[in-house]
Design a protein around this nucleic acid. Structure first.
Lengths: 210, 210
DNA sequence: GCCTGTGAATCCATTCACAGCT
DNA sequence: AGCTGTGAATGGATTCACAGGC
């Protein structure tokens, strides 16, 4: 069913489609054509159909897609239909923003541990009830709490060091916010979110306009 | 000098190269080969050279690139060698994280106004000395403070409305964090940063590993 | 000898256009 | 008649491989 190589961009778009489908279920829309959904997601209809075609046939010719059904399918593809356990390292403003992100909560992404090296913060209780732990406990808590993913929200200068600790603890998926490439073994997935690069991108385009 | 169509990914990589070059200047590295710099940025050497080739010839054959010189060139290309004036809308955890981001400060991106619709927050003074203003003042302050870019850090449900206000005020570059496409006129540049989509991407890859 | 700059070749993603199903 | 699913065609971006200059 799943072909060998799925473009990374396809996966990103699937995640985006699922956001829109969620909104559509809230609107009680039951059926949607590739044309309409693509329009909402700002991609071409052919692109949307091709993205789905990597994984199978989910529509009805002459009709369209069942919104709820398609959402289920995409969630199964992305494996977001299960609960995932994550930890976060670095409880500054960014860390808190992530901990309180409603979209995370809504979808079974459970923060089960929070780490920070600042002695002032260690031992404090977060609104969710979690207690901030020191980084040296990463390995132990990863085992006992069965943590599967780590989010690094520390300053860039600590990012690689923290990543090494997470990997050493057995974590195989890392999301980070530092504007640098983090080195990991091949069997550890890494994604980065980089504000500053996006902002510079924007400046480049802005400078061309004005 | 600049060819017609520069790939967007090239621009993103240039921004990334500039980060690494900054670090290299701090290390007092003066000359670097495309091979070495590419290695640090996790791209191929050919890619790096091709990216630069869109804009001119900046290296010395048989030698490499002058780090400081190349950094200057890239900053000129990206237009990050000037000061830019930005405002931020939505002063929650994310907004605060952005306001305090050292990388922003370091590079002449000046936050000159902060808006939030929460009456509790309006009138409060931020650590930087800025006072939080109500959104209805966006248009006026954009004019008087000559704001060029807007960052939207509100909940997704307010993002389009805020974008409309920024556009109406004459702002032509918007960075936002909502997992949806914001509609803008063609002459307004938009970039989005989407945690949740990145996280789902990661989950997809993680699920394949385990 | 070494490393850049670049046309040519390759690879990959997107779009086209229509066959196939309801 | 309408809309999906998909091979074929197109269009871009990346890599190759080497000519050109230090």
């Amino acid at each position: 069913m799943v072909k060998n190589k799925i473009p990374d961009l396809t996966i990103e778009r699937l995640a985006f489609y699922s956001r829109r489908l969620e909104m559509l279920t809230e609107n009680r829309t039951h059926i949607i054509s590739s044309e309409k959904l693509a329009e909402l997601c700002d991609v071409s209809a052919a692109q949307l159909r091709k993205d789905l075609a990597y994984f199978g046939e989910f529509g009805v010719r002459g009709v369209g897609y069942d919104v709820e059904e398609l959402l289920k399918v995409i969630r199964r593809i992305l494996a977001t239909d299960r609960d995932w356990r994550l930890c976060i390292v670095g409880i500054g403003n960014l860390g808190n923003a992530l901990l309180e992100n409603e979209n995370f909560k809504k979808r079974g992404y459970n923060f089960v541990a929070a780490f920070d090296k600042d002695p002032e913060k260690i031992g404090k209780t977060l609104p969710s009830g979690m207690v901030i732990e020191p980084p040296r406990k990463i390995k132990e808590l990863t085992k006992t709490l069965r943590i599967q993913m780590g989010i690094i929200a520390t300053p860039a200068s600590d990012a690689q060091r923290v990543a090494n600790m997470l990997i050493d603890a057995g974590i195989r998926a890392i999301l980070h916010f530092a504007p640098l490439k983090i080195r990991t073994p091949k069997d550890c997935a890494v994604e980065s979110v980089d504000f500053t690069v996006k902002l510079e991108n924007l400046i480049y385009h802005l400078a061309k306009i004005i």
